[in-house]
């Protein structure tokens, strides 16, 4: 558990989300999480990285309040999680856009469910549609967009409700490689501008190193946090320079060495 202590000591900002000794046993007896403790600092992006079966999506859904936990507790801004809440917004792996609704209505849907009047919620949604680079696409339907653009709508929907914490479940796994790179770069801008806390599930080492302030390395059987890595990359240089930066490449290599024994 020394790694957790390290996270606390190196974290420069206050804690937004705190997971304390959480276990999750699915009906049928499968243990997805075992006594997991981890903290997520405010205003930063923390990745949950690990091989499949390490429980990273389960943990994210527990934080989101979509799954009940078996034991332990999760607090967001000091308040215990008992279900979904206004201070958290979720970005789905398969986008979860409504095919019958336009980009604008999809982006405004979180606000629609909260009963925000139509003109007001559309104005907010339009602002975020622009922020994610989809200005001019407001009246198209999801099936007319590419995978990357659909996920931008999903991100705009999450930003529009103005939650403190954004939970992203492998948001780029259904997006092709070129689009994904551009999207990752844009995500860094959004993080800088919005100053929100991001929790990001991924199975791509490069992606985690590129976008994260810190990476929680999760290992399976039993599911646990094995290490917290803080990629100390100079983000002022250009995206392409980062990808060639020796520090970046070293961290990618180090994580791969740690994970390779878990890959068949």
């Amino acid at each position: 558990m020394s790694t957790t202590a390290e996270a606390v000591s190196t974290a420069t900002s206050p804690i937004a989300v705190e997971v304390e000794q959480v276990s999750k046993i699915y009906p049928g007896g499968v243990e997805a999480l075992h006594d997991m403790t981890i903290q997520f600092p405010k205003g930063q992006l923390t990745s949950l990285l690990g091989p499949s079966g390490c429980g990273k999506t389960t943990l994210l859904k527990i934080i989101a309040g979509l799954l009940p936990l078996t034991t332990g507790r999760v607090t967001v801004n000091g308040v215990e999680v008992t279900g979904p809440g206004e201070e958290r917004a979720f970005v789905f792996q398969d986008f979860a856009l409504m095919p019958w609704a336009s980009v604008l209505r999809n982006a405004a849907f979180g606000l629609e469910l909260r009963g925000v009047p139509k003109s007001e919620r559309n104005a907010i949604a339009e602002k975020y549609i622009e922020a994610v680079g989809l200005k001019g696409y407001e009246n198209l339907y999801p099936h007319e967009l590419s995978g990357g653009m659909r996920q931008r709508v999903g991100l705009a929907r999450a930003l529009a409700v103005d939650a403190d914490v954004l939970l992203m479940d492998e948001p780029f796994s259904a997006v092709d490689e070129q689009t994904r790179r551009k999207f990752q770069e844009d995500l860094l801008d959004v993080i800088k501008e919005e100053g929100k806390t991001f929790i990001f599930v991924t199975h791509s080492i490069e992606e985690a190193v590129y976008v994260s302030h810190s990476i929680a390395l999760l290992l399976p059987r039993p599911s646990r946090v094995s290490e917290i890595i803080r990629p100390d990359i100079d983000r002022s240089i250009s995206p392409d320079a980062i990808r060639r930066d020796p520090v970046y490449l070293d961290i990618v290599e180090r994580i791969w060495q740690g994970l390779r024994s878990y890959v068949e």
């Binding site: 979904p84 206004e86 917004a89 979860a96």
Partner: peptide, 13 residues
């Protein structure tokens, strides 16, 4: 689809 319902729940529908 399960994620559609999860989406509704996570946005407090």
């Amino acid at each position: 689809p399960v994620t559609m319902i999860e989406m509704g729940a996570s946005y407090l529908g």
